[in-house]
Structure formats: structure tokens, C-alpha cells
């Protein structure tokens, strides 16, 4: 009984880690330019495919090189997307940006489908994946532990980056007041490009972990993107800690609903809770109310 419960919590931790890696990108981009970047789920997908292609093109590429390299390439793609599709619209109506983001997402899905094909694939096992028995029937694979640990490490690095470095400070300043920041001589384009780069790199890590544990296909970003977006909203969109808390909370509720109620109710209960939570705290768990200047 307890063994099953521990097993289910481990399952939730892995799912939550992947949600969190995507949710962070949503929350960071929203924080700086108030854009709900609906293409972000597809950047997560793209990251998985970049990892897959690296492994296929360079056989024997060590995983410690593959993951950072794929994160870097995806980060550059993220920066390019911002430059090409979003920058000109930065001061346009917010709706134009959101529609553009949706368009970029559809573009990426179809681009990958044409280039790589629509089938689902798995990234060949790169991380060690022996099954470890923890006693009492609880099992975990080595890659599961690594995925959870690497994700947590990336989140800590991100927190330090945003809260303890100059560029991170500038990011938070942009989030507070974009116009004032420019008056202080901060290079706004650089800060926003950095935000996209960091968010895309984290999504790429998520995509690779997902592609190893499960599978990747051109449309995988749609559903997971929505889940991660919802996790970011639960946590309070714009807040980094909130995105992480929201992700683990959503994964936990999903897994525990399956475990102790019924798998039929998984989405119903998870989203029902979301609605209740937003009724109580409209800005999410860690969110703060936005002050509107009149």
C-alpha cells in the first residue's frame, strides 16, 4: 500500500519535472514581454528532435555533450523566432502577438513533419537506464532519477541566474517596467533575446528527457504545452518559483487521481482543481496582481 504510494509519487516527480522545464519558458517570456508564447510547446518538441538528430548524425556522442549542445541550438532557434516573428510586433496589440505565436507553433509542427516525418520516435537510450529495486516492490530506473535531478539542478541554476546576476536583474527590471529600463540604458533587445534563449534551452532539455523516457513526434508539443501552460498559470504566470510549484502540483494531482480515484477522472479533477484555485487566487499561487496605470 505504502509502496504503491511511493511509486506513484516518483511517477509524479518525473512528470512534474518535464512540466516544469516547459512551464519555466512560458513564465519567463510572459514575465518580460507579457506574451503567452503559444509556440513554446513546439520549441519543446523541436528540442527533442534536435537531440534526436544529434544522436543520429553523430553516433557515440556523449550525453554530457549532447544535452548542452541541443540546448544551445534550440536556444538559438528560440532567439531567431523572437527576432523574426515577435520583435516587430512588440508594441502592437497583444492579440496580434498571441496569434503570431500560434502561427509560429503550427509552422514548426509542419516543418518538422515534412523534414523528419510524422512517425513517433525514441531518442536512443543515452542515460543509464537500469531498473533499481528500492524494496517493497518500489522500482525506479536510473534515467528517471537523473531526469529528476538534472531538472532540479537546471531550475536552481536558473534561479541563481535570475536573482543573483546582472543580466538576471535586468530581466526582472524589464518585467517590472519596460520603458523605465530603457531609460536606464539597458539594452532591451538583448535582455528579451536572453529570455527566449534561456526558456528555449530549458524546453530543449525537457524535450530530450521526454524523448528518452517516452517518445517524440511533431505534435507532442500541443498537449504538453497546454499542460505546462496551465501549470504556469496555477503557479502564477510570471513567477519562476510558481511555475515549478504549479508543475509538480499538477503532476501530483493527475497521478494521485489515477492512483486513488479513477483514470477516467484524471483531466476532470486536475482542471476542476485549477478552476477552484483560480477562483480563490486569481493570480495563481505565487502570482501578484498587476497594477494598471490609468
Amino acid at each position: 500500500m505504502i509502496a504503491t504510494a511511493i511509486q506513484q509519487l516518483l511517477n509524479a516527480a518525473q512528470l512534474g519535472a518535464v512540466y516544469a522545464l516547459i512551464a519555466l519558458g512560458y513564465t519567463m517570456v510572459y514575465g518580460t514581454i507579457r506574451l503567452i508564447n503559444f509556440a513554446h510547446g513546439d520549441i519543446f518538441m523541436l528540442g527533442g528532435f534536435v537531440g534526436f538528430l544529434l544522436v543520429s548524425v553523430i553516433p557515440g556522442l556523449p550525453v554530457a555533450v549532447m544535452i548542452p549542445l541541443a540546448m544551445f541550438i534550440t536556444a538559438m532557434i528560440g532567439v531567431m523566432i523572437e527576432r523574426v516573428a515577435y520583435r516587430k510586433l512588440r508594441n502592437a496589440q497583444r492579440m496580434s502577438l498571441v496569434i503570431t505565436a500560434l502561427g509560429v507553433g503550427i509552422f514548426l509542427e509542419n516543418l518538422v513533419r515534412i523534414l523528419v516525418g510524422p512517425q513517433a520516435r525514441q531518442i536512443p537510450a543515452q542515460l543509464p537506464n537500469k531498473v533499481l529495486k528500492l524494496g517493497g516492490g518500489v522500482v525506479i530506473t536510473e534515467d528517471k532519477i537523473l531526469v529528476i535531478l538534472i531538472s532540479l539542478a537546471l531550475m536552481v541554476i536558473l534561479w541563481v541566474f535570475v536573482n543573483r546576476t546582472l543580466i538576471g536583474t535586468a530581466m526582472r527590471a524589464v518585467a517590472d517596467n519596460r520603458d523605465a529600463v530603457q531609460l536606464m540604458g539597458v539594452n532591451l533587445n538583448l535582455i528579451i533575446a536572453t529570455t527566449f534563449a534561456v526558456g528555449s534551452a530549458l524546453a530543449a532539455a525537457g524535450g530530450i528527457f521526454f524523448g528518452q523516457a517516452y517518445s517524440i513526434d511533431p505534435y507532442m508539443g500541443i498537449d504538453l504545452g497546454w499542460k505546462a501552460f496551465i501549470a504556469a498559470v496555477i503557479g502564477g504566470i510570471g513567477s519562476i518559483e510558481g511555475a515549478v510549484i504549479g508543475s509538480f502540483l499538477l503532476a501530483g494531482v493527475e497521478v494521485l487521481t489515477v492512483a486513488y480515484l479513477s483514470s477516467n477522472l484524471k483531466n476532470g479533477i486536475a482542471f476542476g482543481l485549477l478552476i477552484i484555485l483560480l477562483l480563490i487566487r486569481p493570480n495563481g499561487i505565487m502570482g501578484r496582481a498587476e497594477l494598471k496605470k490609468v
Binding site: Q8, N11, A12, V258, S263
Partner: peptide
């Protein structure tokens, strides 16, 4: 007798329950 939804990729919760 467990279910999931189209496009789900993580079945570990359902499978852990079945394993029991």
C-alpha cells in the same frame, strides 16, 4: 480496467496501479 486519453505518453500511474 484503466484508461488514458489520446496523446498521453506517460502511463506510469495507471501501470503502477495495475502492477499492484
Amino acid at each position: 480496467f484503466e484508461t488514458y486519453n489520446t496523446n498521453d505518453k506517460d502511463f506510469s500511474a495507471q501501470l503502477s496501479k495495475i502492477k499492484g
